[in-house]
Amino acid sequence: MSQEAWLTAEVAGPKKASLITKPEIADAMIRRAKRPIFVVGSIAAEIDLEEKKLIDYVIAMAKRYNIQVVATGNTNNEFLKRGFTPDAVMPAVDIGNRLTDPRWQGVDGKGPHDLAIFVGLPYQMGWTILSGLKNFAPNLKTISLDNVYQPNARWSFSNISIKNWIMNLEAILVNRED
């Protein structure tokens, strides 16, 4: 397990994401958050995780943890196909920008979000938006749930195999059922 960017050249600065070495870490962060939000990119519907797609895990987690969902790119379509309606549809940089604004009252207008969970964005797009949040949203915690290391998140998996990833995602879901 290492803090090595997935794209070799995308080395971050001195402040780098801590590793989610076990699913309990992500689970605890989500549990503690009062106003979490999922930012779900277009690749979420492309990635096969054995018989499911990544987006299916997102939907399951969003339902169980009661997390609001922002669909970026054309991901909304994929959610709707699965009978799930996201709370907002907007470009990834637009939601990123709003998350840097401490006065923004969130997608439902009920108060600022305190945790943003990123998944399924093109790697470098996620990298740069998380960098914006790392630098300009000091009160926001961020997690990347992709199976590649996102150095600019507060917490991220390292570059892990699909199998390991599935195990982790399943474990996060199971923990919550306790």
């Binding site: 001195p14 740069t128 790392k134 630098n135 300009f136 000091p138």
Partner: peptide
Amino acid sequence: PFYLPFCDLCCLCTFGKCDLTGD
């Protein structure tokens, strides 16, 4: 501007590298 720093450092002069992360 919504800033998306592509590098947290500046190395443009010999004072640097400077770490500009956050504030």
